[in-house]
């Protein structure tokens, strides 16, 4: 390099200042994300409660880890399943915004040889392309498990750069502060000691758009990897479709769509039998979204799940092109 002689001339001061601003802003953004972001705080709290519940379950007995997005978190009452059905269930349902890979990493961490793993991921997550949403990465760092993000495929630099808000978060937060609204729609009080999220918010349930669900190559690969992981550790695995609100007019179409989807899933892992095929037409059973059950409905879902688990009522793995059980 050809260097100029004067020492002070050799430093691009403004460049260094901008670099310092970049690093400072990234650090502050990371601190905000990990310690102050209301959404992350809620999921961090929920994860800790779920882990505590898991630690309190008997260690000598195989356990049942059920995981998925918020549809799982709001619909599986682990305490009820333990009390009423004597099933040692851990509800590892968090938020769909984590992405399927990150949710899987959070759940696998609680899995021990001999356990049962119930994949209750929302169909949308298994039909989406590969991708690691920032929320999941942020939460893995917030709960002290950055290795979840790395195992899910993130590189350290990209994971560290994800520890910051985005325009949607900043601007909606600003709006909520201006309108003096709660900073996040759910509160920590809603998360029960067993990790079940008893949603208190009530909203008009919008009519969901019933679409065909096609397992994406990424979803296919994820399920295959889960199957192999479970086989290596002698873990029993099955898929359970979440309950979703559909209008009576859309019920037949939705059922046909879910049946096709389950056919695809059952070519990889067994599927827990659900006669309703995940479709529910009673709007009053849902709290604030077509996938969030009210506590009473969550209890019913937990009881039905407990029955299916006790009887291990599964559709067996159907090789692609094989006959479809109806």
């Amino acid at each position: 390099m050809l260097l100029s002689t004067s020492h002070s001339d050799r430093i691009p001061r403004f460049g260094v200042t901008v670099l310092a601003v970049v690093l400072g802003a990234l650090c502050l953004a990371a601190c905000y994300t990990l310690f102050l972001n209301p959404e992350i705080s809620l999921w961090k709290h929920a994860y800790r409660l779920k882990c505590q519940w898991s630690r309190h379950l008997p260690h000598d007995q195989p356990r049942i880890v059920i995981y998925g997005g918020s549809s799982c978190g709001t619909s599986v009452n682990a305490a009820r399943m333990r009390t009423n059905h004597n099933l040692p269930v851990i509800n590892m349902g968090l938020a769909a915004g984590f992405g399927a890979d990150m949710l899987t990493q959070f759940a696998l961490n609680e899995l021990r040889p001999g356990d049962t793993l119930i994949v209750a991921l929302e169909p949308e997550l298994l039909c989406a392309d590969a991708g690691l949403p920032a929320l999941g990465i942020q939460c893995s760092f917030a709960v002290g498990h950055p290795e979840f993000a790395i195992r899910a495929g993130a590189s350290w630099p990209s994971a560290l750069l994800s520890l910051r808000p985005d325009a949607y978060h900043c601007l909606t937060l600003l709006g909520k502060m201006l309108l003096r609204q709660p900073l996040y729609r759910y509160s920590k009080d809603e998360i029960q000691s067993d990790g079940w999220h008893a949603v208190t918010a009530r909203r008009d349930i919008p009519e969901p758009i019933v679409a065909a669900f096609d397992l994406s190559p990424h979803g296919h690969d994820l399920l295959r990897r889960i199957r192999e992981y479970c086989a290596e550790r002698h873990v029993r695995v099955a898929y359970s479709l979440p309950w979703m609100y559909v209008s009576p007019q859309q019920e037949a179409k939705a059922k046909a769509g879910f049946r096709d989807f389950l056919d695809q899933v059952s070519s990889i892992i067994p599927v827990l039998n659900d006669v309703a095929l995940g479709t529910h037409t009673v709007k009053e059973d849902f709290a604030d979204t077509p996938l969030h059950l009210k506590p009473e409905a969550a209890n019913r879902r937990s009881d039905e799940l407990a029955r299916a688990l006790q009887q291990w009522d599964v559709l067996p793995v159907i090789p692609p092109g094989g006959a479809t059980p109806r």
Binding site: F14, T17, V18, V22, A29, G131, P133, D166, A167, C170
Partner: peptide, 19 residues
């Protein structure tokens, strides 16, 4: 301008979407 650039850097870090 230097101050504007610093502000834009902060705004980029706060507002850029993850993907």
């Amino acid at each position: 301008k230097p101050l504007t650039v610093c502000a834009l850097v902060v705004l980029t870090i706060l507002l850029a979407p993850g993907n």
